Computed example of a mutant assay.
Amino acid sequence: MLSVGSIVIRCSDLDRQLLFWTAALDYEPRVPLDEGFALLRPRSGEGPNVSLDAVPSERILPPRIHLDLYADDQAAEVDRLESLGALRVHWPKRPRGADYVIMEDPEGNRFCVVDAAPGDAA
């Protein structure tokens, strides 16, 4: 049996990304931190880990893979993520009425915030 243990995000500024993703996801880093690598785990104990790997890599758009983050209050989460340094991404092909907002972290790694309010199909 396989399961997702960790999603790895490559980054240039490990400290900045560590601050962003721990606050964004309410995750905590495994200590002690490794040189150039941080494993973040959910404080609640539920969900996959997110690892940050300080290995700069070429940014490709559109990305081949991205995170879909489910939110019970999408508007509030988008505002909160923007206050942490995330940016909204305009995509002219986004369907009208789509249940997601495309965003990127402080280094341009894209993710979506999906409206998963009770009663909505996420």
Rank of each mutant, 00 (worst) to 15 (best):
L2A: 14
S3H: 12
V4K: 08
G5M: 05
G5S: 07
G5E: 05
S6L: 04
I7Q: 11
I7C: 12
I9H: 05
R10D: 13
R10T: 11
C11M: 10
S12E: 06
D13S: 13
D15R: 14
R16M: 10
Q17K: 09
Q17I: 06
Q17N: 12
L18G: 02
W21N: 01
A24H: 03
L25R: 05
D26A: 10
Y27V: 01
E28D: 10
E28M: 10
P29K: 01
P29V: 03
P29W: 01
R30V: 15
V31G: 06
V31I: 11
P32Q: 08
L33R: 11
D34H: 13
D34Q: 15
E35W: 03
G36I: 07
G36C: 10
A38M: 01
L40G: 01
G45R: 08
E46R: 15
E46K: 12
P48C: 12
P48H: 14
P48W: 07
N49R: 11
N49I: 05
V50S: 00
S51F: 05
L52R: 01
A54Q: 14
A54F: 04
V55G: 07
V55R: 14
S57L: 11
S57W: 06
E58V: 15
R59Y: 04
I60N: 06
L61Y: 10
L61N: 13
P62L: 08
P63N: 07
R64Q: 15
I65W: 09
I65G: 05
L67K: 07
D68A: 03
L69K: 02
A71E: 00
A71H: 00
D72A: 08
Q74I: 00
A75E: 13
E77G: 03
E77V: 09
D79Q: 15
R80F: 13
G85Q: 05
G85C: 04
L87I: 06
V89H: 04
H90R: 15
H90E: 15
H90G: 12
H90V: 13
H90K: 14
H90M: 10
H90I: 10
W91F: 10
W91P: 00
P92T: 08
P92W: 08
K93D: 09
K93G: 08
R94D: 12
R94A: 13
R94V: 07
P95N: 07
G97A: 07
D99R: 15
V101D: 00
I102S: 09
I102M: 08
M103N: 00
E104I: 02
E104V: 02
D105G: 02
P106H: 05
E107C: 11
E107N: 09
N109M: 05
N109R: 08
R110L: 15
D115F: 00
D115Y: 03
A117C: 02
G119I: 08
A121Q: 10
A122N: 08
A122T: 07
A122Y: 13
